[in-house]
């Protein structure tokens, strides 16, 4: 029974790994859609979300059964809970990528601004780095530096604010205003992706340390720990 249980846990984790890789591809695709104003790629990305959702659902549905049959405790309990939450965060990131694709479609053909697009690209790349860092903490069960993730999140927040200033300055014409609003929402999506990546890092910390720690919190400046 023990072997079956172990292989079920491994299976869940490898599904999560797959999901993580797919989500990374989705972010990359979302950035390409914005950069190239590529409608075809936007549709592909929207359809691609089904692939992510399939992994998400398999994990989501396996966990109640695993809890009921194997009643994991201690490190294994923390592993199952971490998988449960990371799964949810990955799925949400996937959804934000879909939203970006839809925004790009709505903004198709409107006048574009190169500076804004570069800032979005920069934000997106930081998001990918954060996601891979958060997931790497989890896979390696290694948690030495929670600051790294927070540090990575700061340029994203900064870029997001700068972007808004730039968008406001774009001018009074209606097509420009419409494009600016769409891009503002896209920027917000990327910023949220960064937040989810931080949360994934928090789950990795919980798995390793056995206590939950919030790295950043909108209502508190310094990290808080709850045992």
């Amino acid at each position: 029974m023990r072997e079956l249980y172990t292989s079920e846990l491994e299976e869940l984790e490898s599904l999560l790994r797959e999901e993580g890789q797919l989500v990374d591809r989705a972010i990359r695709a979302a950035l390409n859609v914005l950069d190239r104003d590529d409608l075809e790629l936007a549709d592909e990305l929207i359809a691609f979300d089904d692939e992510i959702d399939r992994r998400y659902l398999t994990i989501e549905q396996s966990i109640p059964s695993l809890l009921a049959r194997q009643t994991p405790v201690a490190g294994e309990l923390r592993l199952v809970l971490a998988i449960l939450y990371i799964n949810l965060h990955l799925e949400r990131i996937g959804d934000y990528c879909v939203t970006v694709a839809k925004l790009a479609k709505l903004a198709h053909g409107l006048p574009r601004d190169r500076d804004v697009l570069e800032a979005l690209e920069e934000m997106g790349e930081r998001c990918r780095e954060m996601l891979s860092t958060g997931l790497e903490y989890f896979y390696a069960r290694d948690f030495t530096d929670s600051k790294a993730l927070i540090e990575m999140d700061r340029p994203i927040d900064r870029a997001n604010r700068k972007l808004i200033d730039r968008l406001i300055a774009l001018g009074p014409e209606e097509p420009q205003r419409e494009w600016a609003m769409r891009m503002m929402l896209a920027s917000r999506c990327l910023e949220r992706i960064g937040d989810h990546a931080v949360d994934i890092g928090e789950q990795a910390a919980y798995l390793v340390r056995g206590r939950f720690e919030e790295f950043t919190d909108a209502s508190h400046k310094t990290p808080r720990a709850t045992s």
């Binding site: 023990r2 249980y5 994991p72 405790v73 201690a74 490190g75 309990l77 923390r78 056995g210």
Partner: peptide
Amino acid sequence: KIFTNPSDKRTEGYVTGR
């Protein structure tokens, strides 16, 4: 604590059934 985050590896091994 014993069932979510035991301090000793031997406890962890026992409660998880390893």
